[in-house]
Design a protein around this nucleic acid. Structure first.
Lengths: 226, 226
DNA sequence: CCAAAAGTGTTCAGACTACACCCATGT
DNA sequence: ACATGGGTGTAGTCTGAACACTTTTGG
């Protein structure tokens, strides 16, 4: 049986990826969205996404699309869920493997292209007109992100290389949408040994300088955090 | 733009589903596997799986395949992960959406068909020669199942309608591969109010009869269990 | 000297762990 | 009578929650 025999005989689906890229800006969780030009979704916002190439793994497609559409590389991405309802795309049968991506705020430089009207960081949870089933994908992604914050170390990918304990706590509070006690938070985080103190300190704020920390490892790990 | 325009232009992938169907038999976690006849995997074991139809959601395809290949309906299924490495299938580019399925042991009646050499419940973790990347899919599924046991009520789908606390504890111990303290386990489970006592009792064993319980709800819920 | 974030300990309550014996039934 | 799983309570430890003041810097 030749490689393309099956391909020709059974082909039916277009496989796409969509990425929910998160970052934290101004004390708010944001996702990267694209404002569309094409009908029937002109003016609607969509996740950066695109078709998977014949010789490309979906994982690689997710990274490629972030690079192409937003000029962002070196991103942490993980698979979220595969959305395959029959009529989710008015153009035909498209099944989309959705990914979550995380970037620290500094490393971000979305670029607009002629293909789209606009590309922008939009506060997660903000009401918009979304293309396709992207509202559902985003809300699934937010829920997953909240869940994983509490039992893994993925938050590391939302922070710059070094950060203060206050900044770390802020990110938790923003995403989990609840206040945490400062002393308890510090005790807990430090007891886990997932971050280490560096020699650096902040300076420049009109307040006492803070110690800078770094994640001991950014490898995905299961750690009971909160 | 017509519906099939995109389809024709960009088609490349065959979309399949594979199901890791779990049950507990004789104090061991088992998965349903099929022994293949076709080259290059003759004699290897594979997950029940098949192609998604053009007008079928992957979810529905998973249920259909269990029905067709094993004569099993009314199964709880949930999406596991999508496996899309370029060369995972020697016949061509096939992307597989993998599902976890759970059935209580009683409701099980796999049927062999002419298409396959054999279909059987095989102890999870047993060494076999697996077709495709199915070894990887199974091990991902086992890990996920273990994780979800500890923070959801999905174990309900592995038990018959009524069951004793001893049987419930057994299933936890089998899947999590660790002993639990009987008194602590009962205290914890009962305090969660996810099961209710029925009026029934067991009979027939050479021992004291046990109270029968039932899950208050089998809807997926997040509950911190262990 | 004032504003702003950093840093630091103790007490209390609830949850989890370890642990051993009697009970009801069938053979 | 004995073998088998069912059923029950308590004490000690650990973890999580609540809570307020001093420190260091820039402006």
């Amino acid at each position: 049986m030749k490689k393309h025999t099956v391909r020709k005989k059974y082909t039916f689906a277009v496989l796409a990826v969509d990425v929910v890229l998160f970052t934290v800006i101004d004390d708010t969780l944001h996702t990267l969205l694209i404002k569309m030009k094409k009908k029937p979704f002109e003016g609607s916002w969509a996740l950066p996404g695109g078709l998977v190439k014949p010789n490309e793994a979906p994982n690689d497609a997710a990274k490629r699309i972030l690079k192409e559409k937003a000029g962002i590389s070196n991103v942490y991405v993980e698979q979220l869920y595969t959305f395959g309802k029959v009529n989710r795309d008015p153009f035909g049968r498209v099944v989309s493997v959705a990914y979550i991506g995380l970037v620290p705020v500094s490393s971000v430089r979305p670029k607009t292209t002629k293909e789209y009207e606009d590309i922008a960081w939009v506060p997660a949870g903000e009401l918009r007109s979304f293309a396709y089933d992207h509202a559902e994908i985003i809300s699934t992604a937010v829920t997953r992100l909240q869940g994983k914050l509490t039992y893994t170390n993925i938050i590391s990918h939302l922070l710059p290389d070094t950060f203060t304990l206050g900044e770390l706590q802020d990110v938790y509070e923003i995403i989990l949408k609840k206040k945490l006690d400062k002393r308890n938070f510090r005790k807990k985080i430090l007891s886990l040994h997932i971050i280490t103190k560096t020699k650096g300190r902040t300076s420049g704020g009109a307040h006492r300088p803070a110690a800078l920390y770094r994640f001991s490892s950014k490898k995905p790990e299961i750690v009971e955090i909160l």
